[in-house]
Amino acid sequence: MNPVQQLTRLPRATLEFTNILLTQDDAEIAASPKDVVWTHRKTTLYRYRSADRVHPVPVLLVFALINRPHIFDLRPGNSFVEFLLSEGFDVFLLDWGEPGDEDADVGLESYVCDSLPWGIRETLRAAGEDEVSLLGWCIGGTLCAMHAALEPGGAARNLALLTTPIDTAGSLYGNWVGRDSFDVDQVADVHPAIPGSAIDWANKMMKPVTNYWTTYRNLWEGVLDGTARRDAYQAMAKWVADNPPFPSRAYREWITWMYKENRLVGGRLRLRGERVDLGRIEQNLLVVTAGADHIAPPPGTLPLLEAVASDDVTHFDRSGGHIGLMAGSRAKGEIWPDIADWLRERSGR
């Protein structure tokens, strides 16, 4: 396209660009039909509707405490949930909801020792099965790993952990919040629920130019040359902008135990008095890392492979970022089938 053509397209492109940005909240995300199975406080367990359940062992999806789990079911045609359902899995989702000031007392123990096992129990009950596959992403993966370490002979048969922080030494986030001068207690005292926007800002500041400029520049160029995908951009942008608060107690514990003291990998984390020993994890284990992940970089996840007692350990290391790995345009053809294959081989009676 020559400069004259670009100039003539400029008014229309400007209108289209601003329209995409201004109407992103209208994007349809998390649209797969699902039913509420169980609720407790802000936590909701969903079961996705399917007429084609083939594999007996249900899959329970567990996402992080930051951002919403809608990324599992981003948009019709590009949804991991949709893909799993088409592969014959019985899919459940544990949604942590949107904590408020009244949830300031919810700590990691509440998630790992209460909500997660209770969600598993209700999953088993709804599916009529004795075992479940846990699929955790980001902090959700860490919570699943903690749960598996506390209940090695529990109902979880398979454990799939995607871009999961385990060892935070040397990480950028650790450099920011792990230092003594970062007063996590002050933050948690002032905010009963840490604003999601603040955590989102910190995450975006890890790659400031990419997040605050390149994303929009790429969209602009796409609009200008007619290749922009409105539905894909808006769905992802809407999900990225939806940041639930982080309960202050959980935030204080997460930052202190994981980043300031790095307890989990050292086996020094205790929940309800019981040591969270990764060496007790015996489930079939799948660990997926993303080469360009700056939030949970692979070196921070790989120690898990050596720490666990599982006989069946698989590691996929793929290109992509923390979210792009599973929600990018290539995920459907690359990583999703591999995860589904791994689950399928371990989901029979």
């Binding site: 367990l45 709804a126 099965e129 004795d130 209940e151 090695p152 002979g153 529990g154 109902a155």
Partner: peptide
């Protein structure tokens, strides 16, 4: 799982199927 109390937990989960409760 044989040397863990969690085995009992699993069997509980299996038996509770009949006791479905509304959300």
């Amino acid at each position: 799982s044989s040397n863990s109390s969690a085995g009992a937990r699993r069997s509980h989960a299996g038996r509770r199927r009949s006791a479905k409760r509304s959300p």
